[in-house]
Every structure is written in C-alpha cells, then in structure tokens.
Design a protein around this nucleic acid. Structure first.
Lengths: 345, 345
DNA sequence: TTTATTTGCGAAACCGGTTGCGTGTTACCA
DNA sequence: TGGTAACACGCAACCGGTTTCGCAAATAAA
C-alpha cells in the first residue's frame, strides 16, 4: 500500500521543468498557456495520477462543493425519499452532501450548526426538529454568509428559501374526506405544537370541520408523544374512552401509523368500520397494509429536488433566497382505511 | 448580512499584539504558552467569534474528519437504518458523513470513487452495487491510503474490513422454516448472481433443501429484474405457470416484497394458503401487512454501528483492517405469511 | 556570581493550489 | 528596421492554520 498520493502540482512542474503556476494554469485550461504545454501537463498529470488537493483549492476559493442536509430522522420514508431527490440534483451539479440527523433534538441541531461554521459546506438544506423553540443558531450561520433552504419543516420568521407542500389544503382535504365518509367525530393526531407546517395542517383540518358544522366543544387536536410506551398509552386511552373516542382520525405524521394500527388491533377496533384513518405518509407499503392505508402523499422526491436546485443556484449564482417559496402539492390516495365499505381484498 | 466571517488567527494576533504562531499554539493548549496568554487568546477568540478554517487545518493535517458512506439505495429500510447506526457512532467521534447513492449502477460507483481521491474523506464505508463486475476503482482508492470497510454487500477478494450478517445460516434458516411449514417446492428469488452475500444465502438455502431431500431437477433460484415492469412480468409468469409455481418463496431482498404481494393479489394466489413467503427485510411495517410478513431481520442499525467503529479506529489508530470481519446474526421473525394456519387478525 | 535549564514567544517555512504582475520572445505592421 | 502587441511563461504573494527552530528572559543549580 502506498502511504499517500505524493503527486502534487509541484511534482508535475519538476518533471516537465516548468513552474507550479504554469501547471496550475494549464490544468485550468487557461488562455495564457500554449496548447503544447497544456498537452504535456495533461499527459504528465494522468501518468502520475495527479489529483488536485481538496484543501488547497478550497483554501483559496472558499468553496467546498458540499451541502449539508439536516433531517430529524432518516429511517422514514418521507425524509429518505427527499434525500434521494436532493442527491439526484446535487450529484448532477457536482456537489457532495453531508448528512446530519437531529433525532428531533434541538440540542443536537445546535451542535451541528456549530460544526458547519468552519466553511465545510457551501450551503444548508434543513428540515427542523420538532421541539424547535429557538432558531438563533440558524440565523448565526446565515449571518456569516452561508445560504440555507428549508424543506418541509421550516421556521416561519426566517426570510430564506423554503420548499413545502400545501399543508393547509392537505389538512383540509384530509378532514373533508373523512367527513364525506360519514365521520361525525374527527380528530387530528399531531406530534408538535411548534412546527408551523403542522399548525397549518391543523388549520385546514379545522376549516373543513367548521364548514361542515362540526364544532366539537372539546378539543379535537391531540399532541401525541412519540416516545414508544407513552405513545401507545395515550392512543389507547383516547381510543378506549367512550366520551373521547373518534370515528375518524387524521394522522399528521407517518410514525404514528404503527401505534395506531396496533392499538386498534389490541382494542378490537376495526378500521374502517369503527374508525376511519388517513395519514400524511410516503409509505410505499400503504396499499399492502391491513387495511390499506389512505394517505396524503407528499411529493417527497420532488421537494428534495426543488430544495437542492434552490440552494445550488443560491451558491453559484448568488441568487437571493428571500421570498423564494416553492409549494409542491400533495396527493390524496384513497384506500380502504377511510372508506365506508370495508370490502378490501 | 455579513459577507464572510473575517476572523482569522491573524485577526486575533493583531488585536492582542502577538504572533500568529502564538495564537495557534494557545488555541491548541500547547505547553509552551503561558496560562495568561492562553486566557487572553481564548477570550479574544470567543469575542471575535473565531472559527478555525476547515481548509487551512486540513491542508496541514491531511485529515477531513469526514467519512464517505456509499449505498445503492437510501429509500430502503435496511440502508436507512444502517446509515442511522453509522451516524450515531461518527457523531460521537466527531466525524461528518458524506452520503453517495449509486442506484445500483457500477458506472456511478466508479464516478464517486474518482471524487473521493482528493482527500475529501478520511475513510469509506460501502455497500457495493448489484452489478459490480469489477472492483479496480475500490482498490485504487485503497492504494492511496484511504481505509475502507464493506458493510452488508462486500467484495470477496479485497482484503479489508467487512461487517455482514450470517448470510449462509440465514438462507438456511429461511428455507428450513418453509420446509417445516410443509412446503414441497421452495424457490429463492434473487436480484443478482454477483453479490457474494446473495450467493451465500443461496448456498444456505440449497443446503437446507438437500438436507431435506428436496432436489429439484429444474433450477429453483431465480434472478428477478428490479425494473418495475419486467419485475412484475417475471414474477407473474413464474407464479402462474403450473409447472414452475412454487409453494414457498425465500425473497432475498426487501424491494421484491411489493411486486410479489401485488402479483399474488392479481393472480388470486393467497398467502400463506397457496404460497408461503419469507423475506430478508427490515421493514417496520412487516407485522401490519396483509398478511403479516415473515422476515429474516438483519441487524441493520448494529451493522452500521460496527462498520463505523471499524473505520474510525482504522483512521485514528491506523488499525489494520485485514482479516477484520464482524458478523452480526440475523433474526427469524415468524409471522403469518409463512404459517400453516391462516388465522391472522 | 556564573553556568544550566526552563519558560514564553516570534520568525519563517510549510501544506498545495491560485493568481496578478512582470518579462522575455516572437510576430506583425508601418 | 524600429515599434508595438500578442503570446507564453516564471516569480512570488496569498489563502489560514501548523510547526520547527531559535532566541531572550527568567529561574534554578552550582
């Protein structure tokens, strides 16, 4: 094993008896170098397996050709698809992506931002964490000139690019669909009061309810803990209390699907006869579940692509991101979990 | 917006009236700097929001504190979980991870390796792509001194670290389970003849068959295209041909699950009565499918953790990776898709 | 007091590629 | 043939930390 690749621009210069600068310019196809010299340099470079040093070029150019992608979770069909969308674009444009996972913890999100201030990345794509109570760390990084684009989970009061879905409309459509299926007591299961996208979904949800004169005195929006045991407990108690028990649920995030299906099975509540369910989800397997799950399907891949395109053009063209808001509409995929007739295969 | 963070080591030196070198040493807590000076430097640094420049330090140290993670796919429960495992370790040890997706294309894999030769990463974790016919690009990168660890999909004849599951045993157990459930004609659905881990699963599978005197004259290992339409076609024709049609299938990879369930539904083949199915899969939703899917569950998260630990110690301790092979055993999760009685909820 | 030793810091080279400027050569035109 | 411009390349500073070396002052030992 060779310990290091020792071929530098100096090696080539020495071999050809020319100067460092000439080699550098030749490699950049500069007009001030003759074709003959360029060819000699190119040949020597390939012969010596020359690879430009990332640190040396970055030191001058202040560009890393890397983008940070910060997500709360990666073992999730929305985020993994979004990352895939991001990658297709960044790969084409010659950018590398650094992945950071916050596990929905603001403390970790802050640590990550500290790491990013050393010029390691040229831009940031982020879906913020659930308990994001403050966003100073985000502003600080933007203040030192690093462009940032939110995708899906965004901070409202930071002026920069954002790529989201039509959350209000989706929440509205979800609720309306359940009402159309005859639900009388519709609930919304959420995981955070802080995330603006969830607030908007709730607003749409409430709009649909009020349009249909469903004005339930008691609150019908529930914040469910995502901690394994607590989650099941809360759901179980909600579904088993005859006074609270809904006949339709809009689930705001995919990760609540499993506990709800499990709780229903345990409580002998059958979907959709006793309870109709619709979920914001990108699960490929939705149609194979028992019963097949009605979903609000976000265009995760496209959201990733759009966000990546935005950040790339901000970096290369110095494009301003203020007022850049891209909305990729979601799709309602009706399946058996929300239908009146329980006839599925 | 401040255009750039202009605070360098020189800024601090100028402010305090000392030299660059002294500041640098003070920041590293060098023994040759007095405590008084260190404190002054530290204070000035925090006051000026000093952040060491990644390129400058990397240029000297030749370390990027970054690791490349190369996977064929990311919207897949095994790989996303493995990445999550990797991230937990690298985050603790202060490493960044760069994600690259090959989409199972050797051409893209090669391009990625070209990009990595500029010193951008200190090490590589890779699960190779399906049609990996040659591995020269991998050897070349290792030759310039970059350590590499395979996880899950490995190249057999490259001597370096690898973290895999007990593929032979898992294949054996999967087949034996189906035989115990009364299957007479058991098939193995694979996606590649090149991947050694799949070869081993097939070997285990065949071993179980021969131990039970199931020696089928015609070949019972099928290579299924993963191209959407072709995939369904192949599966449909296999399942509808009375001479070929199996009563038990071992599915080697998760992504074949959906087409097989779909094909069965379309052909009115009921699982498990007509066909018992077991799949190598990390799907969280396996128990919610209709019918619940029996899986060989790989410890994806742990595989990621182990691979990350290995590469980190190779980088920091210069630990040799030859003969480093870690095997994380898989688990058989029996559910209704492979059971004799079809009584599921 | 003299000689060693330690302590604290500055000067400068270095990592590897980039770039502005200057210079020598050739070519072209008057 | 003299003057000018285009051409091709070398030189050296620069990016921002790191590190070696050397020196002076302070302290310790003799």
């Amino acid at each position: 094993m060779i310990i290091q690749n020792p071929t530098t621009i100096k090696t080539i210069a020495a071999k050809l008896g020319i100067s460092k600068g000439t080699v550098s310019k030749a490699l950049q196809d500069s007009h001030e170098i003759s074709i003959a010299t360029k060819n000699r340099v190119l040949e020597a470079a390939s012969e010596l397996h020359y690879k430009p040093n990332h640190f040396a070029s970055g030191l001058k150019s202040r560009k890393s050709k890397a983008i940070a992608v910060i997500v709360p979770e990666i073992a999730d069909s929305f985020f993994s698809l979004a990352i895939k969308g991001i990658e297709t674009i960044t790969q084409k444009k010659g950018y590398h992506i650094n992945i950071y996972i916050t596990n929905d913890q603001i403390s970790k999100e802050k640590e990550i931002f500290k790491l990013l201030s050393d010029g390691r990345v040229d831009g940031v794509l982020i879906s913020i964490c659930r308990d994001a109570t403050c966003s100073d760390h985000i502003k600080e990084l933007m203040d030192i000139g690093i462009p940032l684009v939110f995708f899906d989970r965004a901070v409202e009061n930071i002026e920069t690019g954002r790529v989201v879905t039509d959350d209000f409309t989706s929440g509205y459509n979800a609720a309306r669909h359940l009402i159309e299926q005859g639900c009388k007591r519709v609930c919304f299961f959420s995981i955070s009061e802080n995330l603006s996208i969830l607030q908007k979904r709730v607003e749409g949800f409430k709009q649909a309810l009020s349009e249909n004169n469903i004005i339930d005195a008691c609150n019908n929006v529930y914040q469910i803990s995502t901690d394994g045991n607590k989650c099941i407990e809360t759901i179980t108690s909600l579904l088993s209390d005859p006074d609270l028990r809904p006949d339709g649920i809009v689930i705001s995030v995919e990760l609540l699907t499993i506990p709800i299906y499990m709780a229903c099975k345990a409580l002998n509540i059958s979907i959709p006869e006793d309870l109709k369910v619709i979920c914001f989800s990108n699960l490929q397997y939705a149609s194979l579940l028992s019963p097949p799950l009605t979903t609000i399907t976000q265009p995760a891949f496209e959201i990733g692509e759009q966000a990546a395109s935005l950040i790339c053009s901000a970096i290369t063209n110095n494009r301003s991101l203020k007022n850049e808001k891209i909305i990729c509409p979601s799709r309602l995929d009706v399946r058996n979990s929300s239908l009146v007739t329980g006839n599925w295969a």
